[in-house]
Amino acid sequence: MKRIYISEEYCIGCRLCEIHCLVAHTKSKKILKAFKDEIPKDATAAVLVEEEGHLSFALQCRHCSDAPCIEACMTGAMYRDKKTGAVLHDEDKCVGCWMCIMVCPFGVTAADPATHKITSKCDLCAGQDSPACVANCPNEALVYEDRENES
């Protein structure tokens, strides 16, 4: 399947990916309106920029082929989309047992203290040609491609 891959050499830590991820998951999808009316102040994006000194990179759910979060999720909220292969999260079902936090080796599922559920899980911007973080990265530090069939 197509996945987001990271080239840490090119990441400049501008965090545009975080901003565009938040906007892409609002109703209006318009940056000004979204930040004015739709996005709470302490909102977390589904992409997380890790930074230390000169090194930085943007990390989001890897949509693992053998996803430990799906096996650990005891409600069935974490599931694989049969068509796209993406690992998706159904907030309605989630009860906040934090089993996915316990097993995700990338540490990309996060708890929302307000709702006591897992929040902002990367959905590869379902239906878009390219996820918002990739599309808006000015330096191609994020790429969206299918590498499985090469070896």
């Binding site: 996945r3 990271i6 890897r62 082929s65 996803a67 080796p105 990338f106």
Partner: peptide, 11 residues
């Protein structure tokens, strides 16, 4: 790098 640039197959 192995984690973020390979096809993830975690167990």
């Amino acid at each position: 790098k192995h984690m973020v640039s390979d096809v993830p197959m975690m167990m």
